[in-house]
Write a protein that binds this DNA or RNA. Sequence first.
DNA 1: GGAAGCGATGTTAGCGATCACATCATGAGC
DNA 2: GCTCATGATGTGATCGCTAACATCGCTTCC
Lengths: 335, 335
Amino acid sequence: MAVRSPAMTDVARLAGVSHQTVSRVLNGHPNVREQTRLRVRAAIAELGYRPNGAARALVTGRSQVIGVVAQNTTLYGPASLLAALDQTAAEEGFAVSVGSVRNLDHHSISAAVERHLSHRVAGIVVIAPVESAGEALERLPKDVPLVTVDGDPRRPVPLVTVDQVAGARAATQHLLDAGHRTVWHVSGPADWFDGAGRIEGWRAALLAAGVEPPPLMPGDWSAASGYRCGRLLARMPEVTAIFTANDHLALGVLRALHESGRRVPDDISVVGFDDVPEAAYFIPPLTTVRPDFDAVARASLQLLLAQIESGTGGAPRQTIAPTLVARGSVAPPRH
Amino acid sequence: MAVRSPAMTDVARLAGVSHQTVSRVLNGHPNVREQTRLRVRAAIAELGYRPNGAARALVTGRSQVIGVVAQNTTLYGPASLLAALDQTAAEEGFAVSVGSVRNLDHHSISAAVERHLSHRVAGIVVIAPVESAGEALERLPKDVPLVTVDGDPRRPVPLVTVDQVAGARAATQHLLDAGHRTVWHVSGPADWFDGAGRIEGWRAALLAAGVEPPPLMPGDWSAASGYRCGRLLARMPEVTAIFTANDHLALGVLRALHESGRRVPDDISVVGFDDVPEAAYFIPPLTTVRPDFDAVARASLQLLLAQIESGTGGAPRQTIAPTLVARGSVAPPRH
DNA sequence: GGAAGCGATGTTAGCGATCACATCATGAGC
DNA sequence: GCTCATGATGTGATCGCTAACATCGCTTCC
């Protein structure tokens, strides 16, 4: 307790130099004699000195921390993204501070961003999949580096996003290619952009094939809602192919179909989205679309660092293409 | 860019008071006239002033940030815990900074903790389910508030933990109560304390019932390893009840049993652990054990805050009892 | 040989808050 | 009416660091 942890001047005294020289060594400044550098290094090691990030942040006006705003970090997508962001950030010497919010309304988002700002984070990543989040973001001070992930494509904000439309199109097309006349869709919440994008891709694939899209089955990402939709779909004999907006919805659908005695993939084919690690062990193994969360994290951080270094604004965007992972839940329809 | 964000003195000038008075208003100091307080509040609002956490951290020596060290924040348990910690911390005015590490060896843990220390976090929560983590922790400076979650019960470090033993015992007992002669166990990695605790509880329940525990099936939390163990178990006609160390293992087991034509729960009963949101939609719905992550998070934070405020060391520990959630994957054995 | 250049180092001034103490009314108590 | 506690406010030092400038010795070049 008593002893305060050593500061730069302590190191300087021990090494017989000025604190500024210590600072130079720490920051890899070139103009330091090799011998001096070693002496300083030794002193740092001996004292167990650790630079004070707060002091540095105070004087530079920026901490080495990146704030992340996300809603439900328990969901597989956000959780993966967060982990990937943290890994990537650590490699660049940044720490990641999370500010998870219960709801994605203006107020919550703003509050979370405020908290980050008051810690003078170097930049902010907002995993903002809903409309209301975007509005909140436009009100923010323009001078803080910001990147949104899976946000609103229509807003002039730097954006990294999984290509939901392409992924959904690929999933739908995969089912059409297998010979299905049409494909039903159990969607995510329509006010989530990724949900909307998947709906759009599904619709586009059908229209391109000259098929009128069947009615949408609206879900909310949860297995529970997938199950509810699945019960309905199971009662309609004409349904032979289902694309769900994520794997958990698919799990619910599989369960409902199973209960109704409709076999997958013999009677009905199912394709999911996300490729959760468990998807390969569903009954049957789930064909799904895999977004590359690492790539998203890397791209986001890159965009953020670019802003931090250059101070440039602009609204670049980057799209990460997902890949289809074929497993056992798709088969040609029986006639 | 150009305009630097307003500081306390700016607010003071606008409100016609000294910076110290502003500070008092901000920190809820009592000795401020109501009228002055309002003037200051108005000035804060007008300027959009936001206190600078770095400056505060510098002078007080502690930031309002709690560092969390965890390994795989993609897994359901850690992810839930992290989310819960963040929620709870936010309510107390703390931010949470994650330092996820790839491996839980000395070195990685120490590095992550170092990073947190250099930001002068107020305290650290280590989600340290393995042996090697504990060793790294004992080397740490003693003056930084620290709480471990699911760590080594034998080490003299403040610890909050889900009562793995009790949970596993309940699960095993539930199967015995249903009439099964014995219960097989697909375990987590043995070097994880939660894995070890679940093994211990399973074994204890069997021994208490006068049953010699059958050989352990070692898994690694993944559905893939559950599947592998499940294939083996499916070939042994005497197996009628399986307790898996988590729900994902159970998913793999269910799939293996299904493939082998052994019905659950008619032929074999299965109980999992974690109660992931999807567990209710497995085929069949999974009976499982639900740890209360919110309670764990709350307890951890409480312990941490107590240390922060009092500066007391000590090694209190708190155990959170999980609850059994009965669903459809358990039935009496057929004879 | 002296001005100029440069590399290595030291000195000083903040960054924006808190803390400890000083100041100054104001009203109570004798 | 004068002391004194008390409440409201201001002043100055300080936290640990970096940025900008100052200094000093040594080569380099005409």
